[in-house]
Design a protein around this nucleic acid. Structure first.
Length: 435
DNA sequence: CCTGGAGTTGTCCTA
DNA sequence: TTAGGACAACTCCAG
């Protein structure tokens, strides 16, 4: 009779340190088999040159190398998670499966199926809070309904953090519990149907830069400075611990900590109002009939609108999988308010292109920009892309970095005149929002 | 239930 | 030149 084992299933938590579910698995008393599954339900929708798969792959290799001296390494599989885990339970004597919570609608449905399959085999499925400090109903109003305004949410969040503290889950101290033995090498990217691509966002592993955090509030709005943390992708895939980030924010930068609270705010919004994935948080905004001109959309995507800040941002996104936050607001406002294109089109484009794409933040911020969301910018607050340029890239450093033909005849004229677009937006929004 | 203050990140116009 | 109100009221939230 072989000795029973537990599986730790990595999903959005690709790290060995301060990992809640992994920590609990390592303390379970059983040997731990670390597993990652490339989910074909997700991968089949991605183009072969998607930049996120190399990011994940890179970090899996790093985890594997770290584990090798003391264990078998990480077992990396490819397929539908329910069937993959089912076959693992056929091939190994599995006592239970451990993982961390994932709050997205797809993940919730998947985990439910996994749990039922395991249950039918007498195997328990244990999951833990890891990617946020507070989840589900932990930060709600006194009548236990969810907050839909950020500021009071953040006040209670901060208060709870002070009262309860930030827990540690030192999984890195329990390395003796990994299953030993020999496993195959990891699949190559080409085995998964993806091409390698050079990574700009941190091959060397995540680093919280105290200097950037200390000056974050002053610097963060100037895209040319590159003084944002660029930790979004690490937070998305869990290659950094959010608790470590929160501790750093607490120590060095209230402004950045606030951004982490926004992240949790939008995660809770998606949790409590899953319909936002498909429609406006405020239902009356679903009445808006968008122009949705495909030529305009194409020009926006390609960075050919004739508005330098918009175009620079869209080209940065295409080239790097990243866009500076200030510029994200400008391009999102331009698409929805100047071009009157459905925010869901822009949301989908970002979802395809952003390395740091995360459903709840992307959705929440697009709805914020479009004015359709909870606690959103009022619809009459319309960014002027030229004013934004003057304020935040007056010396055109960011613009020239991404638009080599800027200032030549090659660069297009604005596809729409600002004051005309502004008035049109105000009239269209007010028309459809009238009761 | 009532009440009053507040609400991420703007822009434009007028005095 | 600059400061302040308009933009639209409305809903949320805490006391």
């Amino acid at each position: 009779m072989p000795e029973p084992k537990v599986i730790f299933w990595f999903r959005r938590d690709l790290r060995l340190n301060d990992n809640h579910g992994l920590y609990k698995a390592l303390l379970s008393g059983y040997k731990v088999l670390p597993v990652f599954i490339f989910d074909t339900n997700i991968l089949k929708k991605l183009p072969a040159d998607d930049k996120r798969i190399p990011f994940i792959h890179h970090h899996l290799v790093a985890v594997h190398e770290k584990l090798k001296p003391q264990s078998c390494g990480i077992k990396v599989l490819h397929g539908d998670p329910v069937s993959v885990i089912q076959s693992l339970t056929d091939n190994y004597q599995i006592h239970s499966v451990y993982a961390n919570h994932d709050y997205e609608p797809y993940a919730l449905a998947r985990d439910k199926q996994v749990e039922e399959m395991l249950k039918s085999r007498g195997i328990s499925f244990h999951t833990f809070k890891d990617q946020v400090l507070f989840e589900k109903n932990e930060v709600v109003k006194s009548d236990s309904t969810p907050y839909v305004v950020f500021t009071p949410f953040s006040r209670l969040w901060l208060q709870k953090m002070e009262v309860e503290g930030i827990p540690d889950f030192p999984s890195e101290l329990h390395t003796g519990q990994y299953l030993s033995g020999k496993f195959d090498d990891l699949p190559k990217l080409s085995d998964l149907g993806f091409t390698d691509s050079p990574l700009k966002i941190s091959e060397s592993g995540p680093l919280i830069d105290a200097g950037i955090l200390q000056d974050y509030a002053e610097n963060r709005n100037f895209p040319a400075f590159e003084k944002t943390t660029k930790l979004g992708t690490h937070l998305r895939f869990g290659t950094i611990s959010v608790r470590d980030c929160i501790k750093a924010g607490k120590k060095y930068s209230a402004a950045w900590l606030n951004e982490l609270i926004w992240r949790e705010f939008f995660m809770q919004i998606l949790w409590h109002f899953p319909y936002v994935e498909k429609s406006a948080f405020r239902p009356e905004y679903n009445r808006i009939v968008w122009n949705n001109n495909p030529d305009d959309f194409e020009k926006w995507c390609r960075g050919k609108t004739g508005y330098p800040m918009v175009d620079a941002g869209m080209r940065e996104l295409e080239a790097t999988g990243f866009m500076h936050n200030r510029v994200r607001m400008v391009v999102a406002g331009f698409l929805t308010k100047h071009l009157l294109i459905d925010w869901k089109w822009g949301e989908a484009w970002f979802a395809e292109k952003l390395l740091d794409y995360e459903l709840s933040s992307n959705n929440g911020n697009w709805q914020w920009a479009a004015g359709t969301g909870c606690d959103a910018a009022p619809y009459f607050r319309i960014f002027n892309p030229t004013e934004q340029l003057k304020k935040f890239d007056a010396n055109l450093i960011y613009v020239k970095r991404w638009i080599p033909e800027y200032g030549t005849a090659q660069y297009p004229e604005p596809i729409i005149e600002h004051s005309y677009a502004r008035k049109r937006c105000l009239s269209v929004y007010s028309h459809y929002l009238k009761p």
